[in-house]
Structure formats: structure tokens, C-alpha cells
Simulated assay, not measured.
Amino acid sequence: MNSKNSCENPCPIARCLALIGDAWSMLILRDAHFGLTRFDQFRKNLGIAPTILTKRLTTLTEEGLLEKRLYSEHPPREEYLLTVAGRDFLPVLIMIGAWGDQYRGEGKLIQLLDAETGVRIKPVVIDEMTGKKIGTRPIRIVIPDCDELTKD
């Protein structure tokens, strides 16, 4: 799947995965949420090749999850800051982490704590319209101009 073809795909999951479905992009966004902004910080923390990092940062910037800002004129240096769309991706990352904690949680793992209370975060996804936890009720998928699919 590539991002060119995914724009026509009616599934928002497929569209998102075409954009940031690789591990490097998600880890860059994770690190940006935890305060990293500069190329060398990302490279050092992730152990990622510079060419791969450049490509991922370019894509995340072009797609509006990060924005570049000049922080030094001599020599010219830019940093990468989260946009609103990038900040809105944090709950997705937190839920991926919670799934990983439950199903891939062997050994030592980092913990996410509420900064004010120090209590460990245990995220859940709630449907805003019904207040119900996602995954506990059947979901109906409606594809425009197609028959409905039901997930029980």
C-alpha cells in the first residue's frame, strides 16, 4: 500500500497506515511528544540512519504532523515541532503502548504516569457519542456506495 493509492481508499485506517504505518514514523512522533525536536536528538535516541530519518521527517512535515522552525541562522538549523494533527496522534500512540504492555509486556518496560498525581495511566478508548468503551459492542462499517459490513 502506498500513500498515493490510499487517498482514494475510503477506510481512514488504511489512509493513516499509508502515511505513518511504519515503526520509524511512530517512534519519531513518540519522541516529539516527549520533547525531542532536533534531527540529532531523534537520530541518537532512535539509532536510525540519517537517510531514513530525513525521509520520515520530510513526510511527517509534508503531511502536517510536524512543522519545521529555524532555531539557528548561523549555521542554519531547523527543529521539528508537533502540529495540532501531530499532538492529536498522542492518544493513538498511548493505546498502541497499552496494547504492547498487555500482549508484549515481557521484561522491563517504561511506564506512563500522570504528571500531577504520579498514578500509572491505564488508557481506554471511549465513543464520545455513547460513552461506551470501544471493543465491547458490535461495530457496523458503512462504505460509501457499498453494502454494510458488520463486526460482531
Rank of each mutant, 00 (worst) to 15 (best):
L90Y: 13
D147L: 07
K55S: 12
D88N: 13
D31I: 10
K151H: 15
S25H: 01
L93Y: 09
G47I: 05
A32M: 06
C11D: 12
R140E: 05
I126V: 14
P123R: 09
Q41Y: 13
P123W: 06
K132M: 04
H33E: 10
G105S: 14
F42Q: 01
P12A: 08
P12G: 06
Y103T: 11
L149W: 07
G35W: 04
I48K: 00
I121K: 12
K122D: 15
V124Q: 12
T61F: 02
D22R: 06
P50H: 07
I28D: 05
F34C: 01
K151V: 15
I141W: 00
R56F: 03
Q102G: 13
E128K: 07
P10S: 12
L109R: 14
E148R: 10
R77L: 12
R77Q: 07
H33S: 12
E128M: 10
P76H: 05
G107I: 00
D114M: 12
G35C: 07
F34R: 06
R38S: 08
D22C: 08
V124P: 06
E67G: 01
P75F: 00
S6F: 09
F34G: 01
I143T: 12
L65P: 00
K132L: 07
F42M: 03
Q111P: 06
L65N: 00
K151E: 14
C11P: 01
P91G: 09
G135M: 04
D88C: 15
D152R: 11
I143H: 03
S72A: 04
L93T: 05
